[in-house]
């Protein structure tokens, strides 16, 4: 087992007085896709947000490359190389695609033209729409913009919050394909997903969250094969 890039250790966290994560531990290693699945309200998105310093961690720690970054403000976390794509409102709708990507590079404003070209290569759809406003794009395309925007910095890891929520099946597959492509460029990905089946299928490992704590851990394939999980989240056994 190689050293993890990002690890969450025994986190207790929440908004204000309300604690949502009670005892959460997970880690992401280089070159892997990790999926976090679980029922609504299990704290999946909260887990990601706690990394970004968007809520208050009362116990436990978040480590990036072994360095503790618990409760670091979001802007700083991004600068450290953790890129995050929120579930909703994840693009600047009044900015063009190109401008969105440029904003993504805010913390590392050098070599932007080269990286823009890299992104257009990774997301060919965006290349032709680069001068359109992001607000004029379809949901799937917006998701692409959001991911490309997040990759404009030298991301050490990419966090995706429900990237396929509300998308058509066609776009869903496309997004999962892209996530694999991103992994192949050397950026590990942590995805929080409702579409557990598809997410686990592309993931190397997965975590099943229930009530703010991890219930099961295993490789994507193992979790997919697990009867209990299948019954709970995957819509019937197989």
């Amino acid at each position: 087992m190689s050293k993890p890039i990002l690890s969450l250790n025994n986190l207790r966290a929440g908004y204000g007085q309300t604690e949502i994560l009670h005892d959460l531990s997970m880690f992401v290693q280089p070159n892997e896709i990790v999926a976090v699945i679980g029922p609504n309200g299990a704290g999946k998105s909260t887990a990601i947000k706690s990394v970004l310093g968007l809520l208050n961690i009362s116990q436990g720690s978040v480590e990036l490359h072994g360095e503790v970054i618990t409760n670091t403000p979001a802007a700083k976390v991004v600068e450290l190389g953790i890129s995050y794509v929120p579930q909703n409102q994840n693009v600047f709708v009044n900015l063009s695609v190109k401008e969105n990507l440029e904003m993504g590079a805010w913390t590392r404003p050098i070599g932007i033209p080269e990286r823009l070209n890299d992104m257009y290569a990774l997301f060919p759809d965006l290349a032709e729409k680069r001068n359109q406003t992001a607000g004029s794009l379809s949901g799937g395309q917006r998701q692409m913009v959001a991911m490309a925007k997040a990759l404009m910095v030298d991301a050490k890891i990419l966090l995706l919050d429900e990237p396929t929520a509300g998308l058509s099946p066609k776009y869903r597959s496309e997004i999962f394909e892209t996530i694999q492509k991103i992994k192949n460029t050397g950026v590990p990905v942590l995805i929080v997903e409702q579409n557990a089946k598809q997410a686990l299928a592309v993931s190397d490992r997965g975590y099943v969250l229930v009530d703010g704590a991890n219930r099961h851990t295993g490789t994507g394939v193992d979790l997919l094969a697990d009867r209990e999980i299948a019954r709970m989240f995957l819509g019937g056994g197989h």
Binding site: Q89, V91, W106, T107
Partner: peptide, 11 residues
């Protein structure tokens, strides 16, 4: 456009 997104984009 969106202060929250700007925040998590690192702006």
């Amino acid at each position: 456009d969106s202060p929250d997104l700007a925040h998590v984009t690192g702006i």
